[in-house]
Simulated scan of single mutants.
Amino acid sequence: MGKGFNRQRALRWLREGVLMLIIGAAIVWAVDRYRQPALPESFAGMVLPTIDGQAVDIAAMSEHRPLLVYVWATWCSVCRYTSPSVSQLALQGGNVMSIAMRSGDDARVAQWMQKKQLTMPVINDARGELAQRWQVSVTPTIVIIDKGKPVSATTGWTSYWGMKLRLWWAGVTA
């Protein structure tokens, strides 16, 4: 056969592409499970202050629709790519709470947020005590909480649409 369409070659490429996607998905799933934080079974009664002085109840925030909790840090290089998507989700009315891990005092975090033009709500975990209690060792970490219970978690970069899909899925499977 000449330079025309080769059906066998196309099928082989398709088969190998699907196999690579399956292998990639399995690796991502395994890494997420390995790095998954040990969150409390329930967030009931956990009221935390934001950098602007608001008291937030994570369980209450997740009662009517799933909540995306985003653990990040000002020094995290991957967070530079994820934080704008989280901020966009918050601006569009998404149910979002972020936690700045070991990023300085409230004023420093607020200044960093202003400089980066981010407008998501932030709980400051200045000394990393909350992250240590939840065993969050990687930034960024994204946890979806529904009705006060963690339903999924992932680490590393996640796209805007990946976050929306996780929130949607948590709402559908509730």
Rank of each mutant, 00 (worst) to 15 (best):
N6L: 04
W161M: 13
S42P: 07
L130N: 12
N6E: 04
M1W: 00
V69C: 02
A25S: 14
A44M: 05
T82K: 04
A55L: 10
R35V: 01
I99H: 10
V69H: 03
R65F: 07
L67V: 02
P150Y: 02
Y81E: 14
Q88A: 15
V18N: 03
I142Y: 00
V69K: 03
L130K: 11
M46V: 05
G17W: 06
R7S: 07
K116D: 05
P49C: 05
I145C: 07
L14H: 05
E129Y: 12
R102S: 10
L21M: 09
L118H: 11
T154N: 13
D125G: 11
D52F: 01
I145Q: 07
N6Y: 03
E63Q: 15
A131V: 05
W161H: 13
L19P: 00
S98A: 10
V18M: 04
T141K: 00
S85I: 03
S77I: 12
I23D: 08
I51V: 13
W157H: 14
M97C: 02
S83H: 00
R127L: 09
K3A: 14
T154S: 15
V96G: 02
E63C: 09
R108P: 00
V71M: 15
L39N: 00
A170M: 03
L39P: 00
G104V: 00
V18R: 04
V71H: 10
Q114A: 15
S85W: 05
Y81Q: 14
M120L: 14
A110F: 09
V151H: 04
D105G: 04
G24S: 10
L68K: 05
A60N: 04
S159V: 08
M113P: 12
A30G: 10
A44W: 06
M20G: 05
P49A: 05
Q132R: 13
I144H: 00
S98H: 03
A59G: 07
L130M: 15
K164S: 09
A100R: 06
A153D: 04
R15L: 09
W134N: 01
S137D: 02
V86Q: 09
S152H: 02
R9A: 14
I58L: 08
Q117S: 09
T139N: 14
L91P: 07
P40Y: 02
Q114F: 11
N124V: 06
I58A: 02
V172Y: 08
T139W: 11
E16G: 01
M46N: 03
V56P: 04
D125W: 09
Q135K: 15
R65I: 04
L19F: 04
T74R: 12
T50P: 08
G104T: 01
F5D: 14
L11H: 10
I144R: 00
E63G: 10
S98L: 05
